[in-house]
Nucleic acid binder design. Sequence first.
RNA 1: GCUCCUGUGGUGUAGUCCGGCUAAGCAUACUGCCCUCUCAAGGCAGUGAUCUCGGGUUCAAAUCCCGACGGGAGCACCA
Length: 569
Amino acid sequence: MDEKIKNEIRKIALQNAFEHEGVTQDKIVLAKILGLKPEFRAKVKEIVGDITEIVSNVNQISFENQKREIEENYPEILIPKEKIEEREGFPPLKNAEHGNVITRFPPEPNGYPHIGHAKAAIINSEYAKMYGGKFILRMDDTNPEAERMEYHAAIKVGLDWLGIKFDIIKNTSDDMELFYEKGKELINIGKAYVCTCKREDISNNRKERKACKCSRADIKENIKGWGKMFDKFKPGDAIIRFRGDMSADNAVMRDPVLFRIIDEKHYTLGNKYRVWPSYDFSVAIEDSNDGVTHAFRSKEFELREELIDSILDALNMRKPYQDFFSRLEFKGMPISKRIIRPLIEEGKVSWYDDPRLPTLESLKRRGIKPEAIKKFILSLGLTKANTLAPFETLESFNRKYVDAESIRLFMVINPKKLKIKNLPMTDVEIPNHPIKDMGKRKINLNENLFISQEDAINIKDNTLIKLLGLGNVRISNSSGELEGEFIDTKNITDIQKIQWVTQKNAHIIKILIPKALFIGEQFNENSLEELEVYTEQHYLQLKDGDEIQFIRFGYCRKDSQNQAIFTHK
RNA sequence: GCUCCUGUGGUGUAGUCCGGCUAAGCAUACUGCCCUCUCAAGGCAGUGAUCUCGGGUUCAAAUCCCGACGGGAGCACCA
């Protein structure tokens, strides 16, 4: 037995030494042994001595001899270790059975969807997919003052663009009768009561952890009060409260609101109801009733977990597993309506699809692909650590998608005239993509071209330059108006490669370059750079929304016949 | 103020629940080389983290315990 252990130790010591330039350490060998053979954990003290001895012995042997010994005695450890496969997607779920997972995405139709919605939707949808389960879209529309059809529609369009599919689509407000039923039940069992205190008093009592007189009313009175919610009471007169725990450390447990009266027309139900459930109550009931097994929400809801569990416990209803993730925001890109609305009102930002914003509509307009968003969000993981995500990473994912399908076009900034003598051709065909077969475009030209100032500046008399797609040109005059002579079309490396457009058919467009909207707390007055450039006629034949790579400039999305938006480098 | 969450390279994360089989993995950024009629994409290689700090438990701690400090959130008749 001793010999067996010693042999094992020697093998691991040699392997480790071999992997680390002939030197190993006893604590690492010990750790490996114990990891490999957990049965030795009980007798650590016995093998420590052996390890020290063997390790020092192995360290004294030359690297060549170590290698020879391995080859003779333990050839198996020379086989390179297989790389541990990177886990695809999110970590596995607790208490999840394949085929029995139901997740949901519950947006409120009170604004345009943004990258934060995308994160919530993608996380929940991915888990349903991973476990062959179902995914629910539930419009969380229980505040008639805030919801609008416009937003409802925008959310659907956004999700559709992202390519997210749902098995069930519903509205929280579909279940109003169920909420009433469960609300009544809570009153009947004494777990809810009608409170007619003033808002301010309720808030103060919460702070002081004091129960109010309403909470002492008996069940009969509460049943009567519940009835009055539907007719006698006016908005603000009374609310239904959950009997939580006024002394709880978690402030949301201090008898939170279950129902309130809102006499406002609901965007789909009109004036049918006026007693509306609060968020906590409706999600609790809905998630349980919809069969949701796993509910992922962003971190600001973390304290609600206890409340939701406790409402469901009171009603003897099944509880979903809840988990949380950090909010997704980009540096300098506000996500909240509270900040964006005034910018729109002041005209500092054009609309919710302004390319500087993180709304889905903006991201799309800017040329970000849904696949890239999905990959990016997957790469962020399920962390709860608060982060400002790097837009740069999103761009990098996006570049890979966009590169494959972007037509390459020539474009000139600050045009300088260049006249070419002895140009042998009047037409030239240029491939639309360097690798992929995306066809060619024909450019009709004469001796008069434009090149960029930036390129022109490096040109001296007698320089040989390559006009991309055209051929080599020797510059004969570099002062004043540039002149050159066509030489040939030979391939020469180590030569300045320059793009060009024709003078007669140059098409002028504006490129919008979005930058960070805010620098720190400060609005960035230069957040939208506008660049006037000359590009090819062919631009006019592209569809709005097509992605283009302006050679040596970057990727842009065609916004209209005379405007493109810079996607990224 | 009270309560909760959180802290791993320049950046974003994996690993933390169940301490050892990872002298910390991946992506992104950066650097170099290869490819190339683009400063893109692709291929290869490389730099870069004593895992916020201080104690403790243990043969062994990024991982468990205690404390400090930094960041965020909640304390609505919004969701």
